[in-house]
């Protein structure tokens, strides 16, 4: 019988993988990998804000990551700086500001490494409720906006011309990304969240002929990566977050190997 903390870790990891999969697909389709990364990097600032205002870290993270996303969209209206430059500035400034803020709050004793790289083996029962409650909310909302978001992803103007409220759908999607970052932070850490979003999605591409198939395959691949990574982490005494990402990477590499008839697309 595996130990309790391992069961909780596996359940939490699988929950995060399932919730992250459909979002990860859209992040890949919309070429938003660095956008997601920037939001994730700002999460540490959210943790600091949470402590400062006496809020739960999760709430602080959702507030700050959403704020950064909106700030980025506003900054994109100007033409002087390219988006990748903006992302680089915001991403690293937010991460550094978060680190500085947390170190200035000398009265806090927090596990910084846990926030940065995840501490999946310290998952509590409360964390599990958060993962599955938040995850269910994310999946239900994704199901509700799936068709308009897909239409807006294929062509924003065409979708708008056909009556899709693309701005609202995009904002909701961004909120969901913020929520997933908040619930995945403890599992893989803010520096590695993007990996859990995009690697399973990229690995799933080959096995899918429809967007929905790709989301389901990404969820499966993500869950398998979590189990493999945790097993490796326990067996080889390696940090859990990076171990999960290494497992996902190995699955991605496997997905590139041509075996038999390729499901082309």
């Amino acid at each position: 019988m595996p130990e309790d903390f391992l069961v909780r870790a596996a359940l939490a990891g699988i929950g995060v993988a399932l919730a992250a999969a459909p979002l990860g697909c859209f992040i890949v389709w919309r070429r938003m990998a660095y956008f997601g990364d920037t939001m994730a990097h700002s999460a540490l600032l959210g943790v600091a804000l949470g402590f400062l205002l006496g809020l739960a870290p999760t709430v602080g993270v959702i507030l700050v990551t959403t704020g950064i996303a909106i700030l980025l969209i506003l900054l994109q209206q100007q033409r002087r700086l390219a988006t990748d430059t903006l992302l680089g500035i915001l991403s690293h400034s937010a991460l550094s500001t978060g680190l500085v803020a947390l170190s200035l709050m000398a009265w806090l004793r927090i596990d910084l490494m846990g926030y940065l790289f995840g501490d999946i083996l310290a998952v509590t029962a409360l964390d599990l409720y958060l993962v599955y409650g938040g995850g269910a909310l994310v999946l239900a909302t994704m199901a509700a906006i799936w068709r308009p978001l897909l239409a807006a992803t294929v062509h924003e103007d065409l979708a708008r011309a056909e009556g899709v409220p693309t701005l609202i759908v995009r904002l909701v999607f961004m909120l969901l990304v913020a929520l997933v970052i908040a619930i995945a932070m403890k599992i893989v850490g803010i520096l590695l969240i993007t990996a859990l979003l995009i690697i399973p999605a990229a690995a799933a591409r080959r096995f899918a002929r429809t967007p929905e198939q790709m989301a389901v395959m990404a969820a499966l691949i993500g869950a398998v990566a979590v189990l493999l990574g945790l097993g490796g982490s326990f067996g080889f005494d390696t940090p859990s977050g990076p171990s999960v990402v290494v497992a996902a990477m190995l699955l991605f590499v496997l997905s590139l190997v041509p075996i038999g008839r390729r499901i082309d697309g």
């Binding site: 389709w29 068709r147 897909l150 056909e162 591409r205 967007p211």
Partner: peptide, 20 residues
């Protein structure tokens, strides 16, 4: 300009029924 990246699996039928 309407380009769908190879990363998105989308059949022609699905493309035609995106909004309707």
């Amino acid at each position: 300009k309407l380009q769908v990246d190879a990363i998105m699996p989308l059949t022609v039928t699905r493309f035609l029924t995106l909004t309707g």
